[in-house]
Design a binder for these strands. Structure first.
Lengths: 333, 333
DNA sequence: ATGAAAGCGCTAACAC
DNA sequence: GTGTTAGCGCTTTCAT
């Protein structure tokens, strides 16, 4: 329970000055071998451990080896895989990840952002749920790089790693249209999210190109969790006429849809395509628009690292591709 | 890109002393309303932000509001859900989570532990992959509480939150035995992990109670990833005589087994039960031994918080229950 | 090869 | 209500 020994105590015990102890332990050189050994054993005896925050305060004053990640919720595999890819890449460069979940609450995101900046994180990766990011412009001038992931910054110029949401959703709709479907339901997440809007747009583009003007009749939004999604899909199936196919715009909604469809009834024949790969998508035979969340994390890390390395070039925007993985839920019957 | 303004600069700009500026901004009171406003606007103008590490250095000297989590890999839903539950609970008490993945590499775990302790985390939650933890005894004396999750500490007395691995695995075996199975395959993770060993033991207990002495014939271990698990299950199915049922001892292995069984052949008739719930377990109809990783995270947080609160009582060990969720992969045929 | 003094950004303690 | 001084644990600078 006692407080930790400081360098001064190690120095006292080994009979040298604080600076010599510092030199000995940080391997800075210019210390006699014998002195170094004495300091080392004093440190071991006391259980000394460097105070990295004190070192950082003295050194740069202003930065640590911490990188912050703000995202919705780690329990969502999309975010946790993103975090995993990010962390792996950062670690290779001596940086450590500090995570904070916003639960898609803009107010919390603001507070958590402040808190991470106060901790002097070296940079920030954020899957933002805020409508607007102008307030961060001042921060950028003080040298904290931001990398936006999944959703682009608004009113702010910053690096971003995004998905080809529009193209992926368009491909999904086209795939269903090619299979002969005309009444296609679409169930989406929170309508305020840009990812949602882009996916709906891509879907709309394909539908309208196919001459289907009333696709909105089968659009249901704001299904943010699995239960809501399940209910939304059930509601869609209960329509008359019912859609013959459903496009779900993210992994949780697809999960809800699978639960709804499993309940049999007319549902069994309904075709399904989902945005995001699923853990057991292949076993279940779910057709999806797949992409790689880990890769998004790695890209974000690389952008951040290049900024930390002094890259002052214009903001970059990486758009990662999606691909159609055709499985049995859209097989011809 | 410039460095951040310090309190001294804010003080200078508003024409007060550093301490007054400190008081004004930290809301400590005893500041004239007018002064406070002047300081505040100077801070805004400069884009001032508190340096929390400096504050912490001055305050307690030795601790921050950070809690470290060491676990295998966030991409594994077990760990990410654990992290999610932990973070939520910590956040309610003003603490923030800093995560580090060990990839089940003991050496890295050691380095990452050091690194987190140097950062003066307030406490450490660890799903350890090390064989032994005696080296941490000295740390405990310096007041950094450790909470072990999923796997117990060895040669160290510390709080732990564990699963009823033995009971869950025994229940799994019993369930298969009740269904009339006698040749039951069991595929496990890294054999050095205590969770693995406990699960095998529970399984063995049920098998031997049923008079099946040669169950080891169908034991395959060290299937640490999905691919290895898939191959292990295929190998099991190719035996003559083949097992009529398989018990997979964690979520990744179950995933691999599902892939193997899907490939048809004799596999289609093989019964399956897995340890850990799966995201789409209900849709797939996989019988599992389920438990709640988020709950494990919350428990760990509560244990840690009570230690931070001054609880000096003996080490506690929480064992969370598992439950059998019966679905179609073990349905009678 | 070693040490003394100063200071990173902040706050506790004690003035005034 | 406000300022001064000292110091958290460490490293930089400059001596010796």
């Amino acid at each position: 329970m006692g407080s930790r020994p400081s360098l001064a105590q190690v120095a006292a015990l080994s009979g040298v000055s604080v600076k010599t102890a510092s030199r000995a332990l940080s391997g800075e050189g210019y210390v006699a071998v014998e002195t170094k050994a004495r300091v080392q054993s004093a440190a071991d005896e006391l259980g000394y451990r460097l105070n990295r925050t004190a070192r950082e305060l003295r050194r740069g004053g202003n930065t640590s080896t911490l990188v912050g990640l703000l995202s919705g919720d780690l329990a969502n595999p999309f975010y946790s895989r993103l975090a995993s890819g990010l962390e792996r890449e950062l670690r290779m460069h001596g940086l450590q990840l500090i995570t904070a979940s916003t639960d898609e609450n803009p107010e919390w995101e603001g507070r958590l952002t402040d808190s991470l900046l106060e901790r002097r994180v070296r940079g920030l990766v954020v899957a933002s749920t805020m409508a607007e990011h102008g307030h961060l412009a001042a921060e950028r001038r003080h040298g904290s790089p931001f990398v936006f992931v999944d959703r682009p910054p608004v009113n702010l110029t910053a690096d971003a790693v995004l998905l080809d949401n529009r193209g992926g959703a368009k491909r999904a709709a086209e795939h269903l249209l090619e299979r002969g479907h005309r009444r296609i339901g679409i169930v989406g997440d929170l309508s305020r999210l840009s990812t949602h809007q882009d996916r709906v747009e891509g879907f709309a583009e394909a539908m309208e190109a196919a001459g289907i003007a009333d696709w909105r009749e089968y659009l249901l939004e704001d299904a943010h969790d699995v239960d809501k999604a399940e209910r939304a899909v059930l509601a869609l199936l209960a329509r008359d006429p019912a859609p013959t196919a459903v496009f779900t715009t993210n992994n949780r909604i697809t999960t809800g849809a699978l639960r709804a469809l499993r309940q049999g009834g007319g549902g069994r024949d309904t075709a399904l395509i989902g945005f995001d790969e699923l853990d057991l998508g292949d076993v279940l035979g779910v057709t999806v628009i797949a992409h790689d969340p880990e890769e998004m994390g790695r890209h974000a890390a690389r952008l951040l690292l290049s900024r930390l390395d002094g890259d002052e070039g214009p903001a970059r925007r990486v758009v990662l591709p999606t691909r159609l993985v055709e499985r049995s839920t859209t097989a011809p019957r």
